[in-house]
Computed example of a mutant assay.
Amino acid sequence: MSSRPRRTQAERRTATRGRILDCTADCLLERGYTATTVSEVQQRSGLARGTIQHHFPTRAQLIVGAMSHLVDTRISRFREEAALIAPGPGRMQAVVDLAWRDLSSPIFFAALELWVAARTDAELRATLVPEQDRLFAAMRELYAETLGEPYTSDPRVETLVEFTVDLLTGLSLATMLSSSAGSREAVLRRWKRALAVLAGVLPADELLGGRSLSELLPPGGTMTP
């Protein structure tokens, strides 16, 4: 019976680094930024502190390494779910739902903790910004790729994607302190309709719930402030 081949030094290094990042990511998701310390990661991983610091000399590098690991997971998950969206007229609305799942996921809230901490931590901010830029660039490409034609070549879509991300990010922040699922679903429905109007799929009256603007105006035909 042949023995299992011994791992190379590079393979052992990769496995150790992966173990550190997995434990750091788990801690960040479960306990938040403040509680994610080298000591906590050491306890979770069972590795020596020196081993952890050999791979990540500072706590900021450890945190951002874990964030990079989570970013890769987030991109991969988005791509896998996007591949399941069927072609057709409802594709744009399905992309909004996918974006919402992404922007209200535990990984998003882990990133949010880092954003808040980076506001007053120059070292963390310097290492976090490039990683966030990588994420944003990848997600923009994924949104365009998932929407497909005729949206991909439509010059309006880049702006609509930005608006969608900003709106859903704000909605996700609002839900941190609110459990009103009905209100959240209403916002999503209205934004899907607005996107369809802005993209020219639906007539402008649909933005008003199917009623014409003249029906909503008071006598005299002008809106009052």
Rank of each mutant, 00 (worst) to 15 (best):
W100P: 00
D97Q: 01
T51S: 04
R77W: 03
C27T: 09
L28T: 02
Q93W: 15
Q43P: 00
F109S: 00
R74P: 04
M67E: 10
M223K: 07
S212F: 03
P106K: 06
K192Q: 14
L195S: 10
T127Q: 15
R79M: 06
L28D: 08
W115Q: 06
G220H: 06
S172G: 14
L47G: 08
E131T: 13
S183W: 10
P57I: 05
A204P: 03
G209F: 09
E145Q: 12
T164Y: 02
L195H: 11
S180L: 04
R6F: 03
G220Q: 09
T14E: 13
V201C: 09
D97T: 09
S2F: 06
R140K: 05
A60W: 02
T152S: 13
R4Q: 11
D121V: 03
L213C: 05
R19W: 03
T8S: 15
V129Q: 12
G50V: 13
L198D: 10
D97S: 11
P203V: 01
Q43N: 01
V161R: 08
R125I: 05
L124G: 12
L147H: 07
K192M: 07
Q43E: 14
I85C: 13
H69F: 15
L142R: 12
A174E: 08
P130R: 09
L70C: 14
